[in-house]
């Protein structure tokens, strides 16, 4: 595994929490850093209930949830998690972050926090698997009975 952080895509979905837990497990074993990246989309300007968030509060609000909730699986594993927010689609954001940060690998959940049912085009994991220059790990959805994610080891 090349030097560089383990890049994890996070969006608040159960799958992305699972991905972060898996990455944190690997970081414990390897000593690599974990960099959690969130792609800020167009709709995130609308807060809960569809009301507009002011520009100044928009990113801070997302960052607060990112820090306190989305990164919690990393902290639970005792791993320090760096956070980045970038505008764009998840796939493009992860590809550019992987390149710019010299990531050792990219870890994503099998699907994100979408609302429109299953898509067959342009899913983040599919696109990363085709285009990412470093290894990509796709972590499956949490087991329905609540079992922990498989830990790397």
């Amino acid at each position: 595994m090349r030097a560089g952080p383990i890049l994890v895509g996070v969006d608040g979905s159960a799958e992305s929490r699972e991905a972060l837990a898996w990455a944190a497990g690997l970081a414990q074993v390897t000593g690599a850093g974990v960099l959690a990246v969130h792609a800020v989309g167009l709709l995130e300007k609308l807060g809960p209930g569809g009301s507009s968030l002011p520009a100044a509060g928009h990113l801070e609000e997302i960052r607060a949830v990112f820090d306190t909730t989305w990164c919690e699986p990393g902290r639970r594993a005792g791993v320090s998690v760096e956070m980045q927010m970038r505008y764009g689609t998840p796939a493009e954001v992860m590809l550019s972050a992987a390149e710019q940060e010299g990531a050792a690998m990219v870890v994503v959940g099998s699907r994100g926090a979408g609302r429109a049912g299953p898509g067959i085009l342009g899913s983040t994991s599919n696109r990363l698997a085709r285009s990412c220059p470093v290894p990509v790990v796709i972590v499956p959805a949490p087991h329905p009975d609540g079992a922990e994610a498989t830990q790397p080891g």
Partner: peptide
């Protein structure tokens, strides 16, 4: 081709903002 395939599938998600 991919858009056409998704259309034949009845639609679906393209990114977190778009379907």
């Amino acid at each position: 081709d991919a858009l056409l395939a998704l259309d034949r599938f009845g639609g679906g998600e393209l990114d977190p903002d778009t379907a």
